[in-house]
């Protein structure tokens, strides 16, 4: 009973804030609503018993992605009203595509049935949730069964890193950089000169 209540609460807030994300006038508000959506989705994951996913969602999406969005929105001087100018013009096409997709989805779910051997292939690899925690279970699968995919994902991230550096790093001339090694290796002999100043003579 309480579970159902909490589910509907999270779900309703998630949907409502999702609508606000695309309808808010102020982009900063839109990002904040996005964060609210993420929090509610995390709540829904918790209800399913997927505590690891819930935490990762908060840490990665709220902590990193949404904050990055916020930075970008605040740093870039984009005229959002201008971006919305074509909204009414594209509305009929967009609505038509949306309707077609909706009809397709209804068709799909209306006639949905599972393959006869689907339950067999789903259940085989997953460790028993009663015995291991779900972080443990994900780890066990990720580093054994899905090791290959894990490695390729690593390579994809490497490419992303090389790409960012390649496209944005510029070595400018005339920049005065701090050279720590030369600062540290400076000795008293290099920098201090002791002279005897004769009285009344000056240097």
């Amino acid at each position: 009973m309480i579970q159902a209540l909490v589910f509907y609460l999270f779900a309703a807030v998630a949907v409502a804030s999702g609508v606000m994300v695309i309808s808010a006038r102020n982009p900063v508000h839109a990002v904040l609503f996005l964060i609210l959506t993420f929090f509610n989705a995390a709540g829904l994951f918790l209800l399913c018993g997927a505590e690891f996913l819930a935490m990762v969602l908060v840490v990665v999406y709220v902590g990193a992605v949404a904050v990055l969005f916020l930075f970008v929105v605040m740093l870039l001087d984009i005229n959002y009203l201008k971006l919305r100018e074509g909204f009414l013009q594209y509305l009929p096409t967009g609505a038509l595509i949306g309707l077609v997709l909706l009809a397709e989805l209804l068709l799909v779910f209306g006639s949905w049935k599972f393959a006869p051997d689907a339950p067999l292939s789903v259940g085989t690899h997953v460790p028993d949730p009663a015995v291991v925690t779900n972080t443990d279970a994900i780890g066990r699968l990720l580093y054994t069964e899905y090791f290959y995919l894990f490695q390729i994902a690593g390579l994809v991230l490497l490419v992303a890193m090389i790409g960012t550096i390649l496209l944005t790093l510029r070595s400018r001339t005339g920049v005065r950089k701090q050279k720590i090694s030369s600062q540290v290796t400076r000795t008293k002999a290099d920098s201090v000169e002791i002279r005897k100043v004769p009285s009344g003579g000056g240097i």
């Binding site: 006639s111 049935k113 599972f114 393959a115 051997d117 689907a118 292939s121 789903v122």
Partner: peptide, 22 residues
């Protein structure tokens, strides 16, 4: 969602008797 697997071999087995519209 239909076949419960992403492996090509398992998919081929699932689709040997045809597939629904989804």
């Amino acid at each position: 969602g239909f076949a419960g697997s992403t492996g090509f071999d398992a998919l081929a087995r699932s689709f040997s008797q045809g597939a629904p519209i989804g």
